[in-house]
Computed example of a mutant assay.
Amino acid sequence: MIPWSEGVWTTPPAASVVDPDDADLLVTAVEGSDAWRTTSYGFVHDTEHALLAPFPQDSAVEVEFTADFEGQFDQAGLFLRIADDRWVKAGLEFSEGSLQLGAVVTAPTSDWSLAPVPSWKGRRVTIRASRAGDAVTLRARVDDEPLRLVRVLPFPPDAIASAGPLVSAPSRADLTVRFHAWRVTASDATLH
Rank of each mutant, 00 (worst) to 15 (best):
A14C: 07
L166A: 05
D143R: 10
V30H: 05
V88D: 07
I2W: 11
L51A: 11
S171N: 05
S33L: 00
G77N: 01
A76Y: 00
D22R: 11
V18S: 09
V142C: 14
G122D: 11
G91S: 10
G42L: 13
A140P: 07
V167I: 02
K121V: 11
D68I: 04
A90S: 14
I127R: 06
I82F: 00
R183H: 09
R81I: 00
V167L: 02
W87S: 07
V61Y: 08
G164E: 03
K89T: 08
P154W: 03
G91I: 09
E145M: 08
I82A: 04
L92Q: 14
A135E: 13
Q100F: 09
D46I: 04
V18Q: 13
L99D: 10
A129I: 03
S95N: 14
S171M: 02
V117P: 02
W112R: 09
S59A: 14
A83F: 01
A35W: 08
T66G: 05
L92M: 15
R37Q: 10
S168E: 02
A107C: 08
P165N: 03
R148G: 03
G164I: 02
H49C: 06
A76R: 01
L101V: 15
D22T: 14
V136K: 04
W120C: 06
G77F: 00
R183I: 11
A181I: 05
S187W: 01
D143W: 12
A161L: 05
H45F: 12
D46L: 11
E145V: 07
P165A: 03
D68Q: 15
W120R: 04
T137L: 15
D24E: 14
L26V: 15
L52N: 15
E93C: 15
P156R: 06
K121C: 10
P3G: 10
S171G: 02
A161Y: 05
V184L: 13
R148W: 03
R37F: 06
P20Y: 07
Y41L: 15
G164F: 04
D19K: 07
R86N: 07
F94E: 14
D22L: 14
L149Q: 04
L25M: 13
D46N: 15
P165C: 05
A189I: 00
S16G: 06
D143T: 08
D158W: 05
G102K: 06
